[in-house]
Amino acid sequence: APRKVEMRRDPVLGFGFVAGSEKPVVVRSVTPGGPSEGKLIPGDQIVMINDEPVSAAPRERVIDLVRSCKESILLTVIQP
Rank of each mutant, 00 (worst) to 15 (best):
P80I: 04
K70E: 10
K70V: 06
P2C: 10
S29C: 07
I78Y: 11
T76L: 06
R3K: 12
R3Y: 06
L75G: 03
V30W: 02
V12M: 14
R3F: 06
S36N: 02
K23A: 08
K23Q: 11
V30K: 01
F17L: 04
G16V: 00
G38H: 11
G33P: 01
V77C: 10
S36F: 02
P35V: 04
R59T: 12
P2N: 14
R8F: 15
D51R: 10
E60M: 11
A57Y: 15
D10Y: 03
K23V: 07
N50C: 06
T76M: 07
D64R: 11
V27I: 10
R59D: 04
K39T: 06
A57D: 11
P2M: 15
V12W: 07
V5F: 09
C69A: 14
S36G: 11
I41Y: 13
I49D: 01
L40A: 01
R9L: 07
D44W: 01
P32H: 11
V26F: 07
V62K: 00
P53T: 11
I63R: 12
I63W: 11
I63E: 12
P11H: 05
Q79R: 15
A57R: 07
V54M: 08
V62I: 13
V30E: 01
A57K: 10
I41T: 15
I46L: 11
Q45R: 12
L75E: 03
K4G: 02
R61C: 10
A57I: 10
D44R: 00
V18E: 13
V47A: 08
G14N: 07
I78L: 13
I78Q: 15
V26R: 11
L40Y: 00
M48H: 07
G43L: 04
V77L: 08
I73S: 03
G16D: 01
T31C: 08
A1S: 05
L13W: 11
A19E: 09
S72V: 08
I63T: 10
I73R: 02
V66L: 15
V12K: 14
V62T: 05
F15D: 01
P58M: 05
A1F: 06
I73C: 11
V62E: 01
P2I: 15
E52Q: 13
N50W: 06
Q45I: 08
R8E: 15
G43Y: 05
V30D: 01
R9N: 06
F17G: 01
S72R: 13
L65R: 08
S21E: 15
A19S: 10
G43I: 00
D10M: 05
R67T: 13
S72H: 13
A1C: 14
E22F: 11
R9D: 01
R8T: 13
V62L: 06
T31I: 06
I63H: 14
R61Q: 14
I41P: 00
I78K: 15
K4A: 01
G38R: 07
G34V: 00
D10C: 07
F15W: 10
A1L: 08
T31P: 03
P35K: 03
D44L: 02
R9Y: 09
P58D: 10
A1N: 15
V30M: 04
T76A: 07
G20D: 15
F15A: 02
V47W: 07
E37Y: 11
D51I: 03
G34W: 00
R8V: 12
K70Q: 09
G14I: 02
V26D: 07
P11W: 04
K23M: 13
E6W: 11
I78P: 03
R67N: 15
P2Y: 14
V27T: 02
I46G: 03
V54H: 00
S72Q: 14
R3E: 03
V30R: 01
R8W: 11
K23E: 11
L74K: 15
V66A: 05
S29V: 07
G38W: 05
A19R: 01
A57L: 15
D44Q: 04
V27M: 01
E22M: 05
K39L: 14
R67I: 06
M7L: 15
Q79D: 14
I46V: 13
L40K: 01
S29T: 12
R8Y: 10
V5Y: 08
V30P: 01
R61Y: 13
D10V: 05
E37I: 07
S36V: 02
I63A: 14
V47N: 06
T76S: 11
R28W: 08
T76Y: 14
S36D: 01
G38I: 02
P53F: 07
G16H: 00
I41V: 13
C69P: 04
V26E: 12
S68L: 09
R28Q: 15
V5K: 02
R9K: 12
E60Q: 14
I73N: 04
D64Y: 05
S36H: 02
R67L: 08
Q79I: 03
M48E: 12
E22V: 10
S72E: 15
F17Q: 01
G38T: 07
V25Y: 07
E52H: 12
V12C: 10
V18Y: 09
V12A: 14
F17W: 05
L74A: 14
G14Q: 06
A57M: 15
S21V: 05
L74I: 15
V27D: 01
F17R: 01
G20I: 11
M7H: 00
S36L: 01
R67Y: 10
G38V: 03
V18R: 06
G16E: 01
V62S: 02
I63N: 15
R59E: 11
A1Y: 07
G34S: 14
F17N: 00
N50R: 05
S36C: 11
G14F: 01
C69M: 08
R28N: 14
V12T: 15
G16M: 00
D10H: 07
V77Q: 02
A1H: 15
R3G: 02
E6Q: 12
P35C: 03
N50L: 04
V54I: 08
V26W: 04
R9T: 04
M7Q: 00
E22W: 04
R8K: 15
P11C: 05
L75C: 05
E37C: 11
R61E: 10
E60K: 13
R9F: 12
I63D: 12
V27K: 01
K39F: 12
D10R: 03
D10L: 04
Q79V: 05
P32F: 05
V77H: 02
V25A: 11
V25W: 09
G14P: 00
G20T: 10
A1W: 03
V27E: 02
G14C: 03
N50A: 07
V18T: 09
G16Y: 00
V30G: 00
E6P: 06
P24T: 03
L74P: 04
P11N: 06
N50E: 11
I46P: 02
